[in-house]
Design a protein around this nucleic acid. Structure first.
Lengths: 161, 161
DNA sequence: CTCCTCGGGTTGATGTGTCAACTCTCCACA
DNA sequence: TGTGGAGAGTTGACACATCAACCCGAGGAG
């Protein structure tokens, strides 16, 4: 029974190919963003969310839901981004500051987004092709759902006696 | 021409599903390793490579090729792992120390590997199913190849007239 | 033999992610 | 009125990744 939960050779191979692919792609995209535009993947993610919102302003909480980041990571990163002038915190509500994208931040995201998208297309979307890409999208959603379901089973949000 | 290099809605959706899937899966697997076995993804990667080698000993350089890490990351991480007793550096060659997996390291990887593989199976391999998994493996290799080709075009390792 | 260069490996500074503990305001309830 | 809880956000300590600079021993050219 050495096969129990283990992966067989084909599975192992596909899984490792996948891991290598993701790392290679991620590294490539990140280096590009960093070297050409001085933005990290994290910066990019925040700026995309802010720039896609109606008003260019969101609460950290909303950004957290959108990005799935931990709140402390969010707080640290927003502080750093503020120091670099990409965003600004405005104390409208005397409790929950609003995160506002600055002109500089907007300029940065507008400058790098097309090039970034082009790379995603060239190295990912186009290699998959539309059909397989659609399948990947579906499977991805299934996996997320599976994991979420499992996590709720492990630690249910609210349990009553 | 607003569509130029941009992703259209379907592409965008699939790409973002993919990103969310990867992050969710990675987070889940890493938390599991960390909480149940006290190993990070990086620890795991090093220990897998060492334990799969014939002798349980490799040079940092080889580990670097296997993992695709930067040499400084490797050096830092190996130092930390040595401090924790998972590996040992032996100065056989008076210049390039060999990295040896300790009994403790071997015990750790043997303890966590089945559970880890089971999770990979449950949340990734089984959701894909064998056919789509095979396709993913192929596409992954293609993507890696595409990126490698592009990088060599950018900065060729050796060019002669 | 001497000098140079090359490449594996190390180091330190800095930016980033995570955990746990904390603050602060609002609100429910007594 | 005040007391306690809940939730958003912050902070500090620590682990980790990256970059650039450095160390050092081998191998080649003079």
């Amino acid at each position: 029974m050495s096969k129990g939960p283990w992966l067989d050779d084909d599975e192992q191979k596909a899984w490792r190919s996948y891991l290598l692919m993701h790392r290679t792609l991620e590294t490539h995209l990140e280096r590009h963003l960093q070297r050409e535009f001085g933005l990290s993947k994290s910066d990019f993610e925040i700026l995309v969310n802010l720039s896609e919102s109606e008003t260019g302003r969101m609460r950290a909480f909303e950004l957290g839901k959108a990005t799935q980041w931990e709140k402390s990571r969010m707080s640290h990163h927003l502080s750093r981004m503020e120091k670099r002038g990409l965003i600004r915190k405005e104390a409208c509500d005397a409790r929950y500051p609003e995160i506002v994208i600055t002109d500089e931040g907007l300029a940065a995201i507008k400058a790098c987004a097309p090039a970034h998208a082009a790379r995603v297309r060239k190295f990912f979307v186009d290699v998959f092709g539309p059909d397989r890409m659609a399948v990947l999208g579906e499977v991805s959603d299934e996996i997320v759902e599976t994991i979420e379901k499992h996590r709720h089973a492990d630690c249910p949000p609210e349990v009553s006696g």
